[in-house]
Each structure stands twice: as C-alpha cells, then as structure tokens.
Design a protein around this nucleic acid. Structure first.
Lengths: 238, 238
DNA sequence: GTCTATACACAGATAGAC
DNA sequence: GTCTATCTGTGTATAGAC
C-alpha cells in the first residue's frame, strides 16, 4: 500500500473532523445550527494550527485567533468556554483520530511481518494526512492540565504497545529475532514521529512520504527479521 | 566507550557552563563580580529548565522564575535585559555545547565504522549529560526570533551532515552499503532525539543510556553494513 | 449568531531605596 | 548587588447591543 491508496480508504476532510468534534461537544457549544457551527469550527482549528505551528499555543492570544479566523472574540467564546477548553478539545480529538485508525489498520492483518509493515506505514500515512493534528498533539502535550495528561500518556503507551505485541508474536513464530522489543518499538515510534515533527526538512530534501515509509521499514526489517531466514525468504513478503 | 568513561572525559558541571555564559556575556550582564554572577546564573538556568520542562518557556512568567530562584524581579533583570534575551542566550549556548563536543568526538576517529559508533554514542551521551539543555533547545526553538532562527536551523543541518558524511565515506570504502544516506542520517537523528525527548519513558522502562545507545547502534549497523561482509567480518570491530 | 465595548488580572519591565 | 513598589501594555473573558 502506498500513500495514494491509503488516502482513498481513509480520506476524511477537515470538514468531517470538525463535524465529529461538533457532535461530541454539542452541549458545550452554544451554536446549535450544525452547518454554521461545523464551518466555523473548521476555520478555528485551522487557524489554531497555523498560529501554534509558528509560535506555540501558549503564545497564541485569543486576539491572534480572532484576527486569523476573521471572527470576533465574542464569537470564539460561543464555541469554546475558554482557551484551555479549546486546547483540550484538540488534544483529545487528535488522540482519538490516531487511536481509531491505528486499531483499524492493526486488525486488518494477521501475519506479523505484514502487520508490522501496515502499522508502521499506516501511522506515517495518518500523520501525513492529519499532520497538523499530529504535530499539535505532540508539541502542546505539556500544556494540558494534569487530569487530562493521564489520558494522553496512556495513549502514548497504547500505540507503542501495538508495535511491541507485533514484534513479540513475530518472535514466537520465528519471523523476528528475539530482542528487547519494547525498546525497538520505541525506536520505531521515534522515527515515525520524525516525519511530522520535521516535515519542512523532507519537503526541502524532496523526500516523499512513500520513500520515507519504505526507508523506515527497510531499517526495521534489516534489524528485526531473523537473520538466518533473511537470505532464503527475502522475497516472500515483498 | 560507555557513559561512565564518557563522563570522565567530558564532564563539565552546570557551574562550568554558567561560567562560560558569564564570560560570553560579560558586557550585557550588570553584575561584575564573577563569583556571584556565575552562582546566580547557574541558579537561573536550572530554574528556567525546571519550569519550562513543565509548562514551556512562553508560559513561564518572570514572577514564576523569581519564585523558583528565590531572587527578586529586579535582580533577574540585572542578569538579562529581558525574557527574550534569556531565551536566546540559552538557545545559543545550548547549540554551542552540542557543536563543540560533537566536532571533537568526530575528529578523534578515522575508520568510518568506529567513527559512526562514536558520533552516535557521543550525541546520546552528551544529551544525557546536558539533558536540560538539549530538551530546551529542541522544544523552545520555535520561540526565538527569526534572525536567530537561521543560526539554529543551520546547526540542525550541520549535525546531520556529520553523520551523512561518515556514511558516504564508509560507502566509498565498501564498509557501508550504498543508500540514501541523508535519509538514514535523519532517522538516526530521530532516534537520538528520542532519548532526551522521552527520558521519563526510559526511566520508567529501566533502560540505561548505555543500553539505549547500543540498541540504536545495533539497528543502524544491521541496516548500514554492507550485507555480504556482515557474516564474515562481524567480529572485526567489536 | 455575531458583533463591539469593556472589566479585570497579570504579564514584562523599570526606578529608586537600601 | 538586591530589593520593593509601581508603570504600562496585553491577556482572557464577559455583557449586552444588534
């Protein structure tokens, strides 16, 4: 699977996402007309991403946001009870995007090697597709209040556990060599994160998301595949 | 080389660092007595790191800093002309720590394989030793003003180029296999960053810096070493 | 549902006593 | 060299007109 194919299956527009958020927060949002609410939520999120990318969420003032969205301060507060709530909504929904999609991908495959590939690629493609959400959830994680922080930390552990488990079951089937899988999973995660944290770098280097994902998988497989089988079975899964 | 040995060679205390900063900024710092200035600079930096780690530099108020250091607002402004300058000083010095030390390590080795190992480990050990500095330079990079930002970006490229060049020269000597070395260097960097960005995770997993560094090197070598030579020369450099 | 005007808190920064 | 007191701008948030 490459990114183009991935998009066909998973594509959901930023409008769709805004609609999800609207439905989840119907009671706390003062605007009741779905169409207007969704349209403005989309505008707000995009503005938040643009501003926070440059100077961070904390440094973004509500006046900045008002200017960028073209909406007044009063209107903004009709959509969110405050800046804190806005942050929290984006964080929570960001994580739910990651979780939902990753679970779906993971469930699609059985064979550990294929599954590992799918999950690694899937995560990268997701992060490409929802790149502002991914960047934001990572960079602004520090700013959420302690009570919500637990949720975020457990999400982090959860996505890592998916990979760890694949490596472990692959070891049981003699497909992957035995090792500290938790540590390997962390390294994989670090490389995946690289894609959305330093996207500007790869645009400059002219590296496509497919190239990046393939390179990452090559690295992982060079390390994880049981050595003796490497030469013999190399072509089996390609 | 392991972390313990590394420390013996490169160890410089946070007091030493504070002294370096003092000497570099003698003219802009109002306090002229070296001993007091250095002692307080050290206190300020440590406080900045503690507070920014939790909520980010932007969210830290000068009053927070005053409370944490036990110094008054007035005193703080005798050390720095403003919050912006404080940020800039830490960023600049952080990068100079990285650059100086990495250059030194890189110059010590000749053989590409050894050199690659040394540079990878060196970077991780450095980031362990100066972990607040590394974390801060990464997370607060967005907040510096555009004019200084160029310096920071070029530093980023510089450290990556060191690794790219090692891989390239290793390829010329048939030690590493041909590949997109720029991309590989990026991946290596991402994994190195993982150590100081998610230090809490590894403390929790009980993974030592030596284990982490060795694991990373294993991954890199499994991928980079020219395949045919792998089995034959495996023990040569260990 | 969206706007303008404004309340009130707190930020960064400085002056001047000690 | 360090402190307290204070200036001034800007931040978040709300009230109430349209």
């Amino acid at each position: 699977m490459n990114y183009k194919e991935f998009k066909k299956i998973y594509a959901s527009s930023s409008r769709d996402i805004a609609r999800e958020v609207f439905l989840e927060n119907r009671d706390s949002i003062q605007i009741k007309k779905e169409k207007t609410a969704v349209k403005n939520l989309e505008k707000i999120f995009n503005a938040v991403f643009r501003i926070s990318y440059k100077k961070g969420f904390q440094a973004m003032s509500m006046r900045d946001l008002s200017r960028e969205t073209g909406m007044s301060l009063g209107s903004l507060y009709a959509y969110f009870s405050g800046k804190e709530k806005l942050l929290c909504t984006i964080q929570t929904h960001g994580w739910s995007i990651i979780k939902t999609n990753l679970e779906q991908i993971s469930a699609t495959y059985e064979n550990p090697r294929e599954k590992l590939r799918a999950v690694i690629k899937g995560h990268i493609f997701l992060s490409e597709f929802f790149s502002p959400w991914f960047y934001f959830t990572f960079m602004e994680a520090r700013n959420i209040k302690p009570s919500e922080l637990e949720t975020v930390k457990s999400m982090e552990e959860y996505t890592q556990k998916i990979v760890t488990n694949i490596l472990r079951s692959g070891e049981d089937q003699d497909i992957f060599k035995p090792d500290n899988h938790e540590l390997t999973a962390s390294m994989i995660k670090a490389m995946q994160q690289e894609w959305y944290l330093k996207r500007w770098k790869y645009r400059k280097l002219n590296v496509s998301v497919d190239q990046f994902a393939d390179h990452l998988i090559d690295i992982v497989e060079a390390f994880c595949l049981a050595q003796k089988k490497l030469l013999v079975e190399d072509k089996s899964c390609r």
